[in-house]
Structure formats: C-alpha cells, structure tokens
Simulated assay, not measured.
Amino acid sequence: MRAINPWINFNGNAEEAFTFYKSVFGGEFAKIVRFKELASDEFQIPENEADKLMHIALPIGQNNVLIANDVPEFMGRVSENENRSKIAISAESREEAERLFNGLSAGGDIEGPIGDSPWGSYAGMFRDKYGIEWIVDFDPNYNG
C-alpha cells in the first residue's frame, strides 16, 4: 500500500480552506479538479457548482497528502460534526485496490463502485459496516 491519507468534505469552501492550509504547511497543490471539468451529458453540473472543487490535494511532508472536495448541493450539506471526512487509501495496483475495496466494503454501503474514474485513476467509495467512510484509489500516474 502506498499511503493512507485524510480526505475532508466541505460545504463549498474547500478552496478557501486549502489556501489556508497551504499557507501553514507550505508546498504546492498536487491536483485541483473542478466539477465543470467533469461535466458531460451524463453528468450535468449546475452553474452554481461548476467552480467548486471535486478534488484538491496538498502534499504534506514526504509521504502524506491532505485531500478534499466540495460536496455538491444535490447530495445535501455535510454534517461538520459527523460525516465530514473519509480515509483515502492509495493502492499500489488495480488488484490491490480491488482487494482492499472488496474486503473493507463487505457488509457496508457502497457509495461509488470501484472502476475507472473521469480523472484517470481507478477508484471506489464506501461506508464500511462500522460507519467509517473510505475511498480506495489506484493512480497509475502516481510518481511517489
């Protein structure tokens, strides 16, 4: 396994928060993906959410990455006292990603089945049988 990293959900202010985190931790953003970049006929993005962040990553130290996204309004507001974050696992292969996804999600609720993502990785998202939220991801372009 490459790493386990925190993933934080925001109610529309992920960019503001991550600009602040960057001012504290230093470094540069490794990835920024806005919802409008994923828009298609099958995945319509309302104009008021087009510039919100679907994904932002800030490397911290040698092996850690702080990751976040804005939760689209159609999914409801994030309870900032409850389900605000996920544990993100960066797998070393598609096979490892599938094994971890299938094992950890057993008995839980799959939010996004594992498969090829629009941003080029192989990823899936679920809440395990204990209520913990996870994202398992394999990025073939990862250079870490």
Rank of each mutant, 00 (worst) to 15 (best):
M1P: 03
R2S: 01
I4Q: 12
N5S: 10
W7G: 09
W7S: 13
N9K: 13
N11F: 04
G12E: 07
N13Y: 10
A14R: 03
E15N: 13
E15I: 11
E16D: 09
E16C: 08
A17L: 03
A17G: 04
T19A: 14
K22T: 05
K22D: 02
S23G: 07
S23Q: 11
V24Q: 10
V24E: 09
F25Y: 11
G27W: 03
K31W: 05
K31T: 13
I32D: 12
E37P: 06
E37C: 08
L38D: 06
L38W: 01
E42K: 15
F43K: 12
F43I: 04
F43H: 14
Q44G: 15
P46C: 03
E49W: 11
E49R: 09
A50V: 09
H55F: 13
H55M: 11
A57D: 11
L58I: 08
D70A: 03
P72T: 02
M75V: 08
V78L: 06
E80I: 12
N81G: 13
E82N: 15
I87T: 10
I89W: 04
S90G: 09
A91T: 01
A91E: 00
S93G: 01
S93M: 00
R94N: 00
E95V: 00
R99C: 06
L100A: 07
L100E: 08
G103T: 02
L104Y: 04
G107P: 01
G108K: 02
D109L: 14
G112S: 15
G112D: 15
P113H: 09
G115T: 04
D116I: 01
D116Q: 05
S117Q: 11
P118L: 07
S121F: 05
S121P: 03
G124S: 05
G124A: 04
F126C: 05
R127P: 10
D128Y: 03
D128L: 08
E133D: 14
W134A: 01
W134H: 08
V136P: 01
F138E: 01
D139Q: 00
P140K: 02
P140H: 01
N141H: 07
N141Q: 12
